[in-house]
Amino acid sequence: MTSNEIRSLSDLRIGESGVIDDILAPRSLTRRLLEMGLTGGTRLELIRLAPLGDPLEVSVRGYRLTLRRDEAQAVRLRM
């Protein structure tokens, strides 16, 4: 059901999900995201935003991860 549309995790709406296409961040941040399980082909779903709109809570590999908007910006998803 994945289209070819690529969006940033930070552009998702609540409840939307996508599959990780790539991570465009500095090396250490990218490495940490990968270690937390955000590898290519992994499905992410946006669960909610914090009251001030930042950070985000996503569901990934069966657990809940929070990350800031600018960290999420780097995560590119195929919808």
């Binding site: 941040l29 940490r32 950070p55 809570e57 657990y63 991860l65 929070t66 990350l67 960290e71």
Partner: peptide, 10 residues
């Protein structure tokens, strides 16, 4: 110093 990432599990 580099501001640390959040990357926190709930």
């Amino acid at each position: 110093g580099e501001p640390p990432a959040l990357l926190m599990e709930l």
